[in-house]
Design a protein around this nucleic acid. Sequence first.
DNA 1: TGCATGACTCGAG
DNA 2: CCTCGAGCCATGC
Length: 113
Amino acid sequence: MHQFASSTPLRTAVCQLVRLIPAGSVATYGQIAAYAGSPRAARQVGAVLAGLPQDTPVPWQRVINAAGAISPRAKAGAVEIQRMLLEEEGVSFRSDGTVDLHKHLWHPEEASH
DNA sequence: TGCATGACTCGAG
DNA sequence: CCTCGAGCCATGC
């Protein structure tokens, strides 16, 4: 039997951080990587999300690239599914298919406000 | 132990 | 403003 989700520090951090992103907001791979402690490991963030099971509690759809677009990937149709999930959460897309980060980018505001 | 890989980024042209 | 290229770095074999 193959071992799917082997445990790694980055994977643990990424999953917990992504779960903090509220519906209606999005974060970038680089942003998550930075909060996870590795600002230069944006690509690894994508790799972690790619390895999540279908029934994961992690809202992976809320992570997009720095250009505000949904990163293309091998799995056909995955991009459309992600966009649909985001629109259902209230995220609006421009005609060119990008998200207005100034409007939807996640601003982690810990407690105390 | 070393090397190829990729849901990324950013700067130059 | 858009496209292209080279850097980066944790993972898996």
